[in-house]
């Protein structure tokens, strides 16, 4: 890139490609910055002096084509490094559904669950606002309707089109309001076990709802959008969690960590790192219910067994 000196950078791929392009774009525009892990949202980057960024997603998941977020993997310490900056929002997003048609079913599910986690978090975070909530709710409706179709038949053009739109609007929503616990836990799981990001964050949706319900009833907006009975906040939560679990099950996603083939011994050995990474993840700080490292550990243990969160 440095020698070619482009004035247009085009990322064609999934989340990794778009995120990496953002990183390369920063280094191209700002060769004085060498450590991407130290770029804070408060820094002035002054991008767009040399090139514009165009994102062409080939998965319907990350939403990176419409956000200022990028996640890198620090392989030296097996840790996810998220960065977020307003200037990193691409100039143009090109959503071409036929580029997603060849996604295999497992990747379709992983990417689709990433959309669902973005949207669910964007509704329930305290920073949800009038701009983000309608987009996130619409994305939830669309994922529940179209992801099963895209999973069953990858050539379903309408489902692919709806899913790439859902991914984009969920991206816009969480790009403004942030994600919370699904992503704290999901990032940790993905880094330690090298599992697909979307699968990890989608897996934690029910646990995140259950942990947060003591301090928020924002999930009622999701119940309303999905026409889930909610005579009381608690019943609404139970029905919503049951609905999400049914949805995950229908997509062949395990509901407990042990069902991913992770042995108890291995889990216990890696638990301190899972806790350290989830508690240290920036998304933790956007949770409606503040969480301690001890609670992170308990959530992980409950998730391993597939138990309901009752604390």
């Amino acid at each position: 890139m440095k020698y070619f000196e482009p004035d247009l950078i085009m990322a064609v791929g999934g989340g990794s490609v778009m995120d990496l392009s953002k990183g390369a774009w920063i280094l191209y525009e700002r060769p004085d910055l060498t450590d991407l892990g130290m770029i804070s949202p408060l820094d002035k980057l002054n991008l767009r002096q040399k090139a514009m960024l165009v994102a062409v997603p080939t998965t319907a998941g990350t939403g990176s084509e419409s956000t200022g977020a990028a996640v890198f993997h620090d392989t030296a310490v097996q840790r996810k490094i998220p960065i977020s900056h307003d200037e990193l929002v691409p100039d143009v997003a090109v959503l071409s559904p036929q580029f997603t048609i060849s996604m295999p079913p497992e990747l379709t599910v992983g990417a689709g669950l990433d959309v669902l986690a973005h949207a669910m978090d964007a509704v329930t975070t305290p920073s949800a606002n009038e701009f983000t909530e309608p987009l996130a709710l619409k994305a939830i409706e669309m994922v529940t309707q179209w992801l099963p179709r895209a999973y069953k038949n990858g050539n379903d053009r309408e489902a692919r089109f709806r899913m790439i739109i859902a991914a984009n609007i969920a991206g816009i929503a969480f790009g403004m309001s942030g994600c919370h616990l699904t992503h704290s836990f999901g990032h940790a799981l993905g880094a330690v076990y090298e599992m697909h990001h979307g699968l990890c964050v989608g897996f934690f949706i029910p646990y995140s709802f259950q942990f947060c319900q003591r301090v928020t009833d924002n999930h009622l907006a999701i119940c309303k959008a999905l026409e889930i009975a909610a005579p009381t906040a608690k019943e609404g939560l139970n029905n919503l969690v049951a609905e999400v679990r049914g949805f995950l099950k229908a997509l062949n996603v395990p509901l407990a960590l042990k069902d991913f083939g992770i042995s108890k011994k291995d889990f216990e050995n890696k638990l301190p790192r899972l806790v350290e990474y989830s508690y240290g993840d920036i998304s933790c700080y956007l949770s409606p219910r503040p969480i301690t490292a001890g609670q992170c550990e308990m959530v992980m243990k409950y998730a391993y067994e597939g138990q309901d969160i009752d604390f």
């Binding site: 004035d7 950078i9 085009m10 990322a11 990794s16 392009s21 514009m52 062409v56 143009v92 580029f99």
Partner: peptide, 21 residues
């Protein structure tokens, strides 16, 4: 794209799987 890129030089970033796109 065109009006904003006077040099008309595009650098595409992708992975092995998405080269065809």
């Amino acid at each position: 794209l065109g009006p904003r890129c006077p040099k008309k030089k595009a650098f595409l970033v992708t992975d092995e799987f998405n080269q065809r796109y």
